[in-house]
Design a protein around this nucleic acid. Structure first.
Lengths: 335, 335
DNA sequence: TTGAAAGCGCTAACAG
DNA sequence: CTGTTAGCGCTTTCAA
């Protein structure tokens, strides 16, 4: 049937030790009912043969793959990289593996990836945001696969959400800016159709605005150059604004660079506020005032819940993660 | 044995259509020897039952997991994120899945992760750099698993290397700086013991130095704050240097921020050169002169070779990727 | 404490 | 073009 049949199998170990495969299996699974001498014998043989249990066979036999799936929009944004990192680590500590796919913020791609991962036997799914192809959700339900929506907080969603309240946070950001005396604010954000988190933030910001506060929104690519481009537009369209709120630190960085080119200074000429609190946010000049999102903490929390759910059958619980404004030097008080 | 037995199996589809499981299997595998009417029948039934082939069973039966492993030091550095991204995409296009692990630049962690991935049936391994636990290499050999070392170019290595010549590139960088009139240069780099790529770059730089060129090295964390910290040190230790070469754009960014704080300007007071050419390198002020490493391209190339190797049995070939200096505005000509 | 044997869901001869 | 059947490597009763 096949050529690559190099590794030793459980039968080889059994043969090597003169024991039965059942005993070897018991040792490999830490079953207590094995004579400690026998156990050592088996372990030695495994070592000698460089035996690695075949997890496909194990998965087939137990219907447990010890694998959980995460689908993220992109890995090239450090907030997601950190998130994944947190998941991977925690899962690993509990004997699970992460299988990851990136959707490029496209529901169809996500569906396709999910089918693949489901087929691979992923026992649970970690999804970003609440917007997904219905076929995907349906499959998850029909196959009875536990799943969470992350990076968001929505107590009303029938699916457990684990994350921060994007709308509320954006609202607080605007309120903060207002409390600092800003009345005319530009808001720079990434593509709305790609991300319900962005959409939620926009809604939240709008909610905070009132008759005396003026908000103008600028949609752009979620990248440093996107931020820079947006700055160009807002400088001509909304020139008399006193602050710009960016829905990602990455965008804020673009605004910084754009401003540097025009020779304007932060926060004297314009206040800038970010969202994410990426590693470097405290290092920029001036240090960036932003909102601290617990990306890798969220990964760890999600992973922990999933492991628990898988091990004990306890249901996935929604969980609101706190995130607070980190006041640094990029927003000034206006009198 | 088990409770979660929700999904339909191939037998359910066979029953549903009144055909045999062999026929269903043929359809699922795109075998040509199936009547198109029959095929459609099967496809419809699959749809109705939301049938997803169990890949553990398939893997067990064929000894092919259609899975390749990549182990990277960290995902929180965009050069690796892009690399992984390139791999994932290309692998996906060819029906393979990526299983990834992060080693945190620790050989023991890497070994552990590799064992896990090997057990999961990974058919090939993508490793970063050339430094690995011998037990890992041994296992790979004994299990006859194809593997490559990436991010490096070393024609003498018995294992295929696919990447750029780190030493040469660093050498060229120094030569470039020298050609711009710089004689006293500070070199900022990440932890040497964690990365043989960094070590290679250092060697290359040293090679370029001669009696009239003075190089001083500063090791620091591979992060923006690391770069900033290194700048502080070099400003006191090597104050009269005219250029600083950073072995990562991330470090260069730290140097930018540090310089901004001291009020010095780039490149008037100090020239700065990076390494990586991350997305934003062209956006900084001044735009960063750096070396363009084809991270995601490397991922695609590696993945393509691996797929080919797996499909046709052709051996993995070493491949040197070109990388060139991108001259922008952060290095000035000294007279 | 150990062994024998029945599958897990699928593929791939082989036979028709 | 379709069906029958023997495993793939492992876990898990059930017996001993």
């Amino acid at each position: 049937m096949n050529m690559r049949k190099i590794g030793a199998s459980i039968r080889d170990v059994a043969k090597e030790t003169g024991l039965s495969i059942a005993t070897v299996s018991r040792v490999m699974n830490g079953n207590a009912n094995v004579n400690s001498k026998t156990r050592q014998q088996v372990l030695d043989a495994c070592e000698r043969l460089d035996y690695l249990p075949n997890s496909a066979a194990r998965a087939l036999s137990t219907s447990r793959s010890k694998t959980v799936a995460a689908i993220i929009p992109t890995i090239e944004h450090s907030v997601f990289a950190k998130f994944i990192s947190g998941i991977e680590q925690t899962l690993g500590e509990h004997g699970y593996s992460l299988v990851m796919a990136v959707s490029n913020a496209d529901e169809k791609e996500e569906l396709k990836a999910a089918r693949k991962l489901l087929g691979m036997g992923a026992e649970a799914f970690i999804l970003s945001g609440a917007r997904h192809d219905t076929a995907l959700l349906q499959s998850l339900l029909r196959h009875d696969v536990p799943h969470v929506f992350t990076s968001i907080w929505d107590p009303d969603n029938p699916v457990a959400t684990i994350g921060y309240d994007n709308a509320k946070l954006a609202e607080e950001a605007v309120e903060y800016l207002v409390s600092m005396g800003h009345r005319k604010i530009s808001v720079v954000h990434g593509p709305l159709f790609e991300s319900d988190r962005t959409a939620a933030r926009k809604e939240g910001a709008e909610k905070a605005a009132n008759s005396t506060t003026n908000l103008q929104f600028f949609e752009t690519d979620l990248s440093i150059s996107g931020g820079k481009a947006a700055l160009g537009r807002l400088l001509s369209t909304n020139a008399d604004c006193t602050a710009v709120l960016c829905f990602s630190d990455v965008l804020a960085m673009g605004v910084y660079f754009g401003l540097a080119e025009t020779g304007k200074s932060i926060p004297k000429d314009l206040s800038v506020m970010g969202f994410d609190n990426l590693d470097w946010a405290g290092e920029t000049v001036p240090a960036l005032t932003t909102i601290n999102l617990p990306a890798s903490g969220m990964g760890r929390i999600v992973a922990k819940q999933i492991v628990q759910c898988l091990e004990t059958g306890s249901p996935l619980r929604k969980q609101r993660l706190s995130a607070e404004i980190v006041e640094r030097a990029s927003v000034r008080q206006i009198t």
